[in-house]
Design a binder for these strands. Sequence first.
DNA 1: CCCAATATGTTCGATTGTGCAACAAAAGCT
DNA 2: AGCTTTTGTTGCACAATCGAACATATTGGG
Lengths: 410, 410
Amino acid sequence: MGRGNGKLGQSAGSMRGVAADELRRHNLGAVLDHLHLAGPVTRSQLTVVTGLNRSTVADLIGELAALGLVTEGPATVANGPGRPSPVVDVRPHGAVVLAVEISVDSLAVATVGIGGHVFNQVRVARHRGHFRPDQTIADIGQLSAPLLDALPEGSHVLGAAAAIVGIARRSDGFVHFGPNLGWRDVPLGDMLATGLGLPAPVAVANDADLGALGEFRRGGRPDVEHLVYISGEVGIGCGVIAGGSPLLGSAGYAGEAGHNLVNPNGTECGCGATGCWETEAGEKALLARAGLAGEAVGLEALDLLEDRTIAGDRQALEAMEETGHWLGIGIRTLINLFNPEVVVLGGMYHRFFDHLIDSAIRSTSGAVDVSRSMAEISRSNIGLGAPLIGAAELVLAGVIDDPAAVLHSG
Amino acid sequence: MGRGNGKLGQSAGSMRGVAADELRRHNLGAVLDHLHLAGPVTRSQLTVVTGLNRSTVADLIGELAALGLVTEGPATVANGPGRPSPVVDVRPHGAVVLAVEISVDSLAVATVGIGGHVFNQVRVARHRGHFRPDQTIADIGQLSAPLLDALPEGSHVLGAAAAIVGIARRSDGFVHFGPNLGWRDVPLGDMLATGLGLPAPVAVANDADLGALGEFRRGGRPDVEHLVYISGEVGIGCGVIAGGSPLLGSAGYAGEAGHNLVNPNGTECGCGATGCWETEAGEKALLARAGLAGEAVGLEALDLLEDRTIAGDRQALEAMEETGHWLGIGIRTLINLFNPEVVVLGGMYHRFFDHLIDSAIRSTSGAVDVSRSMAEISRSNIGLGAPLIGAAELVLAGVIDDPAAVLHSG
DNA sequence: CCCAATATGTTCGATTGTGCAACAAAAGCT
DNA sequence: AGCTTTTGTTGCACAATCGAACATATTGGG
């Protein structure tokens, strides 16, 4: 009996019953999700993908169109006999998110519509240092105002989300600790909401967690369901997608891998331990090995290092090799624990990928590791903006989850 | 609009559409799941828990009763005015599983019905050594035959599941590697299916993964959704529940924590590295520290150690303390990565819990660990049989997921 | 001892959502 | 031009839940 397709089960816990309207909600989401990720498709393709009946799909598209989330155009080129199927596409300004990234060396803002359309994007470098939160909010406000003004007439702005280099509580956007920003106990969610004058609450999450989400959703890996994203900033951040959904842990602090032990005989870390992953494979270690410890800081130092690496400077290349080694040692633990299909390198490791990767891959091997051979270590497909894209996805996921509710209330 | 209760969304991937029969399936599962976990409840309580209408719940219970999975008895004691609500309970022999545990020092078999009712259970000690797979299958057959015979008339045996100390592939029960059994590349699922003469395929999974499942589902922690289970056998096994469902990874090998690095200056491990978690906190290290390395092996050695510990032997107590320290070091990594509500200690750590725990807790502290203060380290509530219970849950989850399909086909 | 109040089971029609089949429309192919 | 193929459209059937009206069983008060 049954058609046994789309799962809708929770595995455990106190399951709740489900009525017909939830079913509708789920199917609206299924259609919108596919359009969001796969781009323009014909109606007939949508029936195949969702497994739903022609008439049902027509009805769902009608409702999404009424909500201003999709448009139906005429069939483009014909492919074979039969009545041509109209092409359905998302309507980007039907649901727009202001995405924010608060990083160590830069501040970035983007307006992103459903379907992943980036209307505009700004990134400004900041000299590394400790910026006060309220000043950062003001900067973000100045950056975002022109972007919001430039949106097409009738755009529906849903809200904002911020990726931050630090440990943030998902529920209310409270930043516990941002060591490389000099922040502690900052109610960033509330501050951004009032500072930007947006009605909806502002979502705040760790930059690596959002990098993982961005890379998972928009990284062009259609069949990957288990992914580890590693962001090399000053420290090392780590975000995990497990079974197609973000691994958050009980309070959203999962994936804190920066202080995993990797080097028995390493450097003392600020956390009190010795030989933490970020102490051995982080930016400071890399620069020190390259002999750039005192010469420059922040982006200038990294630029200088890149120049020397490209020029074939031996010390720079050896620094890459050794840093890659410790990077790989840390990755090996993550592969054993999460058994992902792919480990994505972002941030600093994205920049120096080619110089680190061979050494890193060598160091992931271990005699009893079954998972290793199956995990690919890959460069981020969406580059430095992954956390920004992930922040947009975080809010857009809310529309996809319940298109009708989100847009009726707005 | 809507009632906004039970989630039925997937977060991403190619979502499929869902028709009305899936909805029915989900609601049957919701009712059965609650009965399975919470035991006898009145019909009116079920309407509250599921959020479904009285008439719907009546209908669902009727179908489950027709499938032989639940029974409706008269109301027990009255509690207040109003018409008394009949008590609904699972019918254990309506869905029975043969659960098997292949451990280093013992072999265990149990017949478990839905609701978690254990009809019978046998555990036999095995002198540690390398048993051939076919001999093990034969032993399991001999152990299980009387248990299956002893089941009540009309029992519906669904299938079997085995927990094994080793790395197994979920899809077909192929055991890649069981170092402490001396097994490599054993098609255990197929061998058990033919050896036990059961029609359905036999599920096989890692003992720590199933320990986690058992402890999660039947450990009496109703609100816990994120759990790490650590099984101290000869090596260290680790199973993870994240967001209410087992963390499996892309091929089911997630949670391999035994070879995480913990001790810079430790002992050389069979895997080639030095200072792995199981080298420092495993059984061999504990016995060596207690001065029992050569005196005895396996269970006898552990019994002797327990005697000495209870007697207050100083070397034994110091061995416990130091082993607890390294145990805690390893746990700290897991807490940082998984941010669980609880870390459950099973196997050898369950046995020596009181002597290890203080030292272990001290060693989990780290300066930047936000998650640590929230994670409780707890003794297994269901004891040594956790993997056995988890094996039963693994198969019973199938009935709960789709009660009608499983029972019609059987 | 009877009767109101209360909570819950039962029944049946209303509502929602999807599937199916028949028909219409639009393209390619001969 | 007419046939074939594919797909949109329409109307009805089917499945599942909800809600209201009614029936039933218990408590507690007069």
